[in-house]
Design a protein around this nucleic acid. Structure first.
Length: 107
DNA sequence: ATAGTGACAAATG
DNA sequence: TCATTTGCCACTA
């Protein structure tokens, strides 16, 4: 990370997400104070996130996973990490989370 | 300095 | 349900 890394505040926020809960890219972007971020920026940040950042707890609006946007390996890893925390999907075929139950409401 | 790109999102068709 | 368009702004070449 460099001194110009504007993602630190974001990473700090992501690290406060409780186990078993998730937030959307847009929600994460708005939750960061002092820095002007957009949902796209959050995506870019997650791609290069440090290992101590629970990047798997950030999903798309509506509880979708970034299918096709990331490698199949990463996709499986994200799903595995979430299920390990008790977050289950609507079905085994679709990578969609039941947000009404797992979305982290806070900020 | 400029143009193209993108782990997004909401509105349309 | 899927495809397209537009706004968004840091990053990369």
């Amino acid at each position: 990370m460099s001194e110009t890394d504007v993602y630190e505040p974001l990473y700090a926020l992501i690290r406060t997400i409780p186990r078993g809960k998730v937030v959307t890219y847009g929600q994460a972007a708005e939750g960061v104070e002092g820095v002007r971020l957009t949902a796209r920026m959050v995506g870019s940040a997650m791609r290069i996130a440090p290992d101590d950042v629970p990047w798997h707890r950030v999903v798309g609006a509506g509880g979708t996973l970034p299918i096709g946007k990331i490698s199949p390996e990463m996709l499986l890893r994200q799903r595995a990490l979430l299920e390990r925390e008790g977050v289950h999907f609507r079905s085994d075929r679709s990578n969609i989370i039941d947000m009404s139950q797992y979305q982290w409401l806070n900020e």
